[in-house]
Design a protein around this nucleic acid. Structure first.
Lengths: 138, 138
DNA sequence: CATATCAACTTGCAAAAGGCAAGTTGATAT
DNA sequence: ATATCAACTTGCCTTTTGCAAGTTGATATG
């Protein structure tokens, strides 16, 4: 019998379930880069803005793939590139992103806090969500 | 001049801002315990279900207080207890929690995935959010 | 009066995760 | 023959976690 040394044994809590998928400092930023910024390759993701390091990015992409949030295919036009894309499961995080963005919009009073994305979500939230859902189909 | 060894220098991204507040494995679970399960004391939070360890809980509560998501007051009825409560800023995460729960409800096909909370959010989402917003005022 | 209790932490140490720089791979372009 | 470029991998050191045990201070107990 396996000893349970704390490790996630499923309590069934939906919040905990979600956190197992993207409950760390980087995963949601990777998703953001794909969903909002349209990043599709490893290089683009690496230059995502927040400075993720290459080993962590590789690890997170692998997890995201394993968890079915992201797909990885060869770029038909570039033998050397792979194309990463959100799956439906990944794109369905759009409402979560939207709420997070709105919350930050309310409470981040920093200088450059008023981003294009925030404005877009405020003005046309369902448009924002749709644009994510209409990302290229894997 | 300070060297920026990666560390969070603000890109202004709302997602990144939010992740600085609760972008780790435990913080959102602590918020969940207060918002959804009504936990108010350190002991209650410690027994939150997922098995957070005491040093981490203490650390997270401190951060949450510093970031203004949680308030800490003495329990007027129990000299030994403190009462932790979500502030408005913390309660405003209700929609984020709701979306996370709905997402998990869609994709968690585990045995005990259909929790009371999920059902409540599905049936009466604004009621769920209101119940969080109506937590005792700090 | 001495001792036990209880909530809320703190401390110490080993283990795991993260960050940084450098190296690898394999097909083209020069 | 050598350089390039995207996508990783590897090694090493630092930081963060996890776990267990200890601390604190006011009451309750004997």
């Amino acid at each position: 019998m396996k000893k349970n040394t704390n490790q996630t044994y499923d309590t069934g809590c939906p919040v905990a379930f979600a956190l197992r998928m993207f409950g760390d400092q980087w995963t949601l930023l990777v998703i953001r880069d794909m969903a909002v910024k349209g990043a599709r390759t490893y290089s683009e993701l690496l230059d995502g803005g927040e400075g993720i390091s290459t080993n962590i990015l590789a690890q997170r992409l692998k997890q995201l793939e394993e968890n079915g949030l992201v797909s990885k295919t060869r770029d038909p036009e570039n033998w050397r590139s792979f194309l990463y894309a959100l799956t439906d499961k990944g794109r369905d995080l759009a409402p979560v992103l939207a709420e997070i963005i709105l919350w930050s919009g309310k409470y981040n009073h920093g200088d450059n806090a008023m981003t294009d994305t925030l404005q877009k979500v405020r003005r046309d939230r369902s448009g924002f969500e749709e644009s994510i859902r209409n990302g290229a189909v894997p």
